[in-house]
């Protein structure tokens, strides 16, 4: 049986792993390669590396770091942050990334999704969608939630699926960093209305939050950062808990 995936996310700034609340007030969480190897050993199903400074400071994700990660870890990983062009993607894939994630550049230039999936295959194109309730509608936001767009999240999810994205990484900016649980309603709405996998992100604080996002949110995967980095939740314990709660996981 296909299992639900647990994905630690490493936010990278200047080659270090950092974690903040709502993408500001950054705290240092350690060396990304070392952390990545620890998560592999503990049974993480995939990893995501986001260069969180790349979009705002227009800086390219460090291909060198990607190479370093690729030579050390034996599970799939996604790299995101500041990716705008086919050349950006080529470089990262050549350095060993399995998938790339685009966010702001997809919102600004949706045809990029078509171009990337045609060139590299849908399976390596993850479209990250940051969302927030504005006037009671889940709306797409960019730049860490600072910039609202005029796109409705559910419509955008359908559009990016049609354009050839392989997966959706859905982050509720309201929940991100709060440890109060994932946004179950919008995750369920998206997961049950598109044909591609949905990775839920933002708000994980307890093991119950993970079982809820799989059972009620219908997510295919769940992503979290600080609770893993600061060892508040140990991945093997989380997997055991999910297994006992009849959620298929790789143990």
């Amino acid at each position: 049986m296909l299992t639900k995936r647990i994905i630690p996310c490493l936010d990278i700034k200047d080659g270090r792993t950092v974690k903040g609340t709502n993408f500001i007030a950054l705290r240092d969480a350690g060396d990304p390669v070392e952390l990545a190897m620890r998560y592999c050993e503990e049974g993480a199903d995939e990893l995501v590396f986001l260069d969180i400074t790349a979009t705002t400071e227009k800086r390219k994700t460090l291909a060198k770091l990607v190479r370093e990660i690729a030579t050390h870890i034996n599970i799939p990983f996604t790299v995101g942050g500041g990716i705008h062009t086919i050349e950006d993607v080529s470089l990262l894939l050549e350095h060993g990334a399995d998938k790339i994630s685009i966010n702001t550049s997809a919102v600004n230039n949706p045809i990029l999704i078509d171009q990337l999936s045609r060139n590299f295959g849908s399976q390596c194109i993850v479209v990250a969608v940051d969302t927030k309730r504005i006037n009671n509608r889940w709306t797409v936001v960019t730049h860490g939630g600072r910039n609202p767009t005029d796109r409705i999240t559910s419509e955008w999810a359908k559009e990016i699926t049609a354009r050839g994205a392989g997966e959706i990484l859905l982050t509720s900016m309201e929940n991100d960093g709060t440890k109060s649980g994932f946004a179950i309603d919008i995750t369920n709405e998206i997961a049950t209305s598109v044909s591609i996998p949905v990775i839920a992100s933002g708000g994980a604080g307890t093991m119950e939050h993970f079982s809820a996002i799989f059972q009620h949110g219908k997510a295919d995967a769940a992503l979290a950062a600080s609770i893993f980095h600061f060892k508040e939740i140990h991945i093997p314990d989380l997997k055991n808990y999910l297994f006992e709660n009849k959620i298929p996981v790789r143990c």
Partner: peptide, 30 residues
Amino acid sequence: NNELKIPQIGWNTISHLRSNLFNNIPENSF
């Protein structure tokens, strides 16, 4: 239905293993 996604992405088990290729790999490995 939309709950079974395509492509299949993730960890699944391999069963009925029958080859030297699977030496020291247990049934139903992920």
